[in-house]
Amino acid sequence: MTDSLFRNVARVAVALVFVVIVLGAFVRLSDAGLGCPDWPTCYGKATWPRHEHDVARANEAFPERPVETHKAWREQVHRHFAATLGALVLMLALRANWRVPVRRYGIIAAAAAAAAGTFLYIAGQHAVSVVASVVALGVPLALAVYSSGRQGAPAWSRFTAVLLALILFQAMLGMWTVTWKLKPIVVMGHLLGGLSVLAMLVWASERSRLAPKVYPGASWLRPWVWLGLAVLTIQIALGGWTSANYAALSCGLDFPQCLGQWWPATDFREAFVLWRGIGVDYEGGILDAPARTAIQLSHRIGAMVTVAAVLIVVAALFRVRGMRGPALVLAALLVVQVALGIGNVWLGLPLPVATAHNGVAALLVAQFVLILSRLTPRRD
Rank of each mutant, 00 (worst) to 15 (best):
M323C: 04
L274A: 13
Q257G: 07
D288T: 11
V314N: 01
V273Y: 08
L363W: 12
V353M: 05
A271I: 09
T293C: 03
I312E: 01
A327H: 05
L328V: 10
W263T: 07
Q367H: 08
I278C: 02
V360A: 07
L372S: 12
N358Y: 01
G325D: 12
N245E: 09
A271M: 12
Q257L: 15
G322V: 03
S298C: 15
L370W: 14
M304P: 02
P256T: 13
A237R: 05
I371P: 01
A309D: 00
L287P: 00
T306C: 08
V353P: 00
M323A: 12
L253V: 12
V338G: 02
W346H: 09
V353I: 14
T306S: 09
Y246Q: 06
L330S: 06
A362G: 13
Y246D: 08
N245H: 14
A327E: 08
P264M: 15
A327M: 07
F318K: 14
P326I: 09
L259N: 15
G277I: 05
A309G: 08
P264L: 15
V335A: 14
W241Q: 08
Q367Y: 06
I342T: 04
T306F: 02
F272T: 12
W346G: 06
S373N: 14
A354Y: 01
G341K: 00
F255P: 04
S250K: 02
H357L: 01
T355S: 00
A309S: 13
G279D: 04
G260S: 12
Q367A: 11
L259D: 15
G325F: 14
D267F: 04
W275H: 06
R292G: 03
V338R: 02
I278A: 11
F368V: 10
Q367M: 15
V360T: 15
V338W: 02
D254M: 09
L349P: 01
G277K: 07
P326H: 10
L363M: 15
V320S: 10
A354D: 00
D254C: 11
C258P: 03
F268L: 13
V336N: 09
L311R: 02
